[in-house]
Design a protein around this nucleic acid. Sequence first.
DNA 1: TTGTTGGCTTCTAGCCGACAA
DNA 2: TTGTCGGCTAGAAGCCAACAA
Lengths: 540, 540
Amino acid sequence: MTLSCRSWKLTLETGKVNSGACALVERGKKGATLIGHSEQVAVSTNKEIDSQIPNYPSLPPQLICQLHNVTMHADVETDEVYAQMTLQPLSPQEQKDPYFPNDLEKVFPPLDFSQQPPVQELVARDLHGNEWKFRHIFRGQPKRHLLTTGWSIFVSAKRLVAGDSVLFIWNENNQLLLAAHAAATNSRFTIFYNPRASPSEFVIPLAKYVKAVYHTRVSVGLRFRMLFETEESSVRRYMGTITGISDLDPARWPNSHWRSLKVGWDESTAGEKQPRVSLWEIEPLTTFPMYPSSFPLGPKRPWPTGLPFFHGGNDDISLNSPLMRLRDGGNPAIQSLNFRGVLQEMRTIDPTKQREQAQSQQSFLQATQDNQSGLFVKVYKSDSFGRTLDMTKFSSYHELRSELGCLFGLEGQLEDPLRSGWQLVFVDRENDVLLVGDDPWQEFRVHEVLEAIRVEVLLFKGLFEMDCLNLGWKSDGFRGQRQSDCCATETNIMPLTKVIRHIHGCLQKSARGKSYQNSQPCSEREMKANRSQSFMEMKK
Amino acid sequence: MTLSCRSWKLTLETGKVNSGACALVERGKKGATLIGHSEQVAVSTNKEIDSQIPNYPSLPPQLICQLHNVTMHADVETDEVYAQMTLQPLSPQEQKDPYFPNDLEKVFPPLDFSQQPPVQELVARDLHGNEWKFRHIFRGQPKRHLLTTGWSIFVSAKRLVAGDSVLFIWNENNQLLLAAHAAATNSRFTIFYNPRASPSEFVIPLAKYVKAVYHTRVSVGLRFRMLFETEESSVRRYMGTITGISDLDPARWPNSHWRSLKVGWDESTAGEKQPRVSLWEIEPLTTFPMYPSSFPLGPKRPWPTGLPFFHGGNDDISLNSPLMRLRDGGNPAIQSLNFRGVLQEMRTIDPTKQREQAQSQQSFLQATQDNQSGLFVKVYKSDSFGRTLDMTKFSSYHELRSELGCLFGLEGQLEDPLRSGWQLVFVDRENDVLLVGDDPWQEFRVHEVLEAIRVEVLLFKGLFEMDCLNLGWKSDGFRGQRQSDCCATETNIMPLTKVIRHIHGCLQKSARGKSYQNSQPCSEREMKANRSQSFMEMKK
DNA sequence: TTGTTGGCTTCTAGCCGACAA
DNA sequence: TTGTCGGCTAGAAGCCAACAA
């Protein structure tokens, strides 16, 4: 279940799961993978008791969860029906789903290989911002990454932050490198949902979410239909037009698809209808490019923006809109990237500055369009200052690359990105990172550059540490139980282009996957056996 | 500062304390001991961001804290001024205050003295309900109580629940035995207060609180004055009448004095005034029995109901009203007890049952009053079922005791409570536990029994383990620092009557007190010195 | 009465490559 | 490729009575 974690009232499950009527089975069967979103029940109902919503500062906008249980309740005072749901974040293994790429990115901070063996202190952070330190070492035969020290403290303290099975690892530049979904024991949480308090659909199947978010192109002006249940439980269709696309709460929950569409309704009677809806609630009237369901998965797949693994949600740079713009299929290169890590490394400008820049750039573009003298964009090299470039001067990618190479002292290197490591990319107004060169030049110049106001062309050479850490929980830390090292997969240091190809490759081998298994705690009995054995040996 | 912990927006203080203007200095100087209360800012302001209020299930309604810092801020959007306060729970030592009895009760679960030395696993719980296990042993020369094992885990994990410096220890009957206020390091927390959002005074001096709560008799019908600040910052008096006394939120915060008075206002212009106020906000017009300030503290002092140490707040039985009913002074016996531990041992009935019982009893009393045939009350012995008793049959306490002794097989024992350990008490509708026998019989029979609907007479023989545990924090758990045992004072096992006399004694020696000192963490330097020393010795 | 110390023991937690699945 | 094991070690954590304040 993917949760757009707006304002869940999270309560830790204290005991056994209740059984009861499952009113939400129609939308997603118990045990099925679902997507859920929430409103602030408290604010809507003005009920004191509902407003005790904890604030997890680093909670990402999406968590992939499984629905375990739904029970229905009625408010004693108002008789309003509400649902209680038990959710459990999915492990990476469980997230293997035809709709998602299987291989989630695996990232480590860079190791100093001059040491033998290479060791580092790995600092991870949980949803509450607590720091957890682990010793990360690269040793063994064959060589492997191990997290040794740190588990016992983490495990013994973990019960205090029950519900936390996610660790985030950041590098020194505050980039999110890794999110380790650990085993789901003790991580269930319960949600209370009052359907009257939230105008939008609350729980929907994951399939519906994925189809809407990744396989539907929406844009301002798009006409759509939307179903509403009437008071008499019958269904009616209302027509409307998309008037805007933006995060409902960009500051707190950037990248949440939850009610990201501003809409206008055709009928005046629909005046009370909510002014914002979610992608999956509407039926677009133009059947614009959607993936045919028979279409093979693989290269044509865009990088899934909504994945929780790249949205820590606790830094300043927001990905304003997560909507993927799909291109024509068949192109083997992945053209659209929305990779927070990349993004952050490329833009170390603080938000205020960024906003100012966007504004000045907007007026600048406005001006240039008025006098038709040129089409200026700013270009940046990742380690130097930006420059202004008139796009009308160029008639091909080659010319552009050549000029940029001169400007930044990278003569020739842009022509061979795979070897040089320098890759020309641009960031559109939706903060998607796109490779320069895949679209025909004219289309790129006119469409891509003109379309967006905040187009920026960037030169980028980034090193990325990849591969997903396979973190299982350690044993439960009971006395006498053994704490063994935790093994993790290898760190790959590679330039952006390789990252892209790597992602590409990952998408292709979608069906195959590694096994994510949690370490089994050693039983008390076994431990005792071990002890008496060594005792016997000593006596000999 | 005593906090009626309604719905603080608690945020952990991450860094240094801000300095700034202290607008609240008029009401309580920085550093002074104050009492604060809060409303749900979120509900009042309808602001989403304010409603993220964590729910601490076991947070008692009062915490005694000290105000460290107040800074004023203004909301960026609305320009509303709000205050940020840094609070710190007081240690037992710091709580020594002329208004409070100095000797807080010291309680341990019973030790099995057949073992030599007696050892037990002590389970404590913090405000979040997390369990902490310690090894409790009684050894040394002279014998003393020590908590040995358990500190390192607690200390290393404590950072996760910063702000928690209170541990509660319960016995197997779910009685609160002990609340250990540990040293305040790392336990500061910050409160944001929006005065516009809460109609009631937010921060008031502790003295004002104590005077209002413990030394003022209020009752329904009482006329009072109350000051209001007008828009022009001048002051006006409004008149009103108390129309009810009840907890604002009996379920979540029983025993909070926060806005416990329902009031009606005289002037129609006062219509917008809040319908509930707190005790300390009003000036009663009848100067009904209040302690003259020169009156010696001691025997006449009722057991302070509002003390945090007996209100864990996380069980089902609520002390519905905390208002003390004061009797005439000069009687050396403490007549009013509101001792959660006592109460719980005596009433193991679950709340639903209790409610049913109260209802049936109500109708029963109604019926008997109609036909005037008797005055029936239920009597209970702590280890057997209740029986119904007609109070009109008795003409003296002696007859009542005699009959009860027969009923429960305690012939003669009720006459000598100090020796037998059996004490006749009753619980009034405010759940106060009162000794039977201190009022004249007629007054008792008519006034006490008839006054309340839910009068219950109980026989009680309870063993209480007393004396306050002197728990200091261990050193901060840094590697290389020594974790030494924690010493605690002795366990006293005594019957209820002795408990009462003990409390009595405690109240008398109000000024004298034991020292509650926290253990000082061993410094890194000292530790190193120690090590090198022993290393040198080894070399010799 | 109680905090601290020295000296001691216990044993967790950690470390490591081997090995097998 | 990765989970677990045996064997090992360092050092934290614990234990205790003595002592001093």
